[in-house]
Amino acid sequence: MSQERWPLWEVFIRSKQGLDHKHAGSLHAADAKMAIENARDVYTRRMEGVSIWVVESRHIHATNPDEAASLYDPANDKVYRHPTFYDLPDELKHM
């Protein structure tokens, strides 16, 4: 008997038109077609979705948490990227 198993897939679901697909969870399936159907049966039983993406888990590349400081901390002092950084008179409307 083969020891191979159905690969793991990550499931992303759009809960309604206009919203992004969001990670819902994972599941096992033999191929992409089956992964989509399994995702439909497992993750949209309570009207949670209108669109499904699946991707085999091994195809996901991720950042390393050890590098979090060098990757994300430098953004901390760039507050000038946020609109509230700029001090403007209250009389100025619609900006």
Partner: peptide, 16 residues
Amino acid sequence: GAWVREAALAYAGKKR
């Protein structure tokens, strides 16, 4: 269910 899981995998392999 072993033969079912195995067959699905074999079929997926063939199609690939």
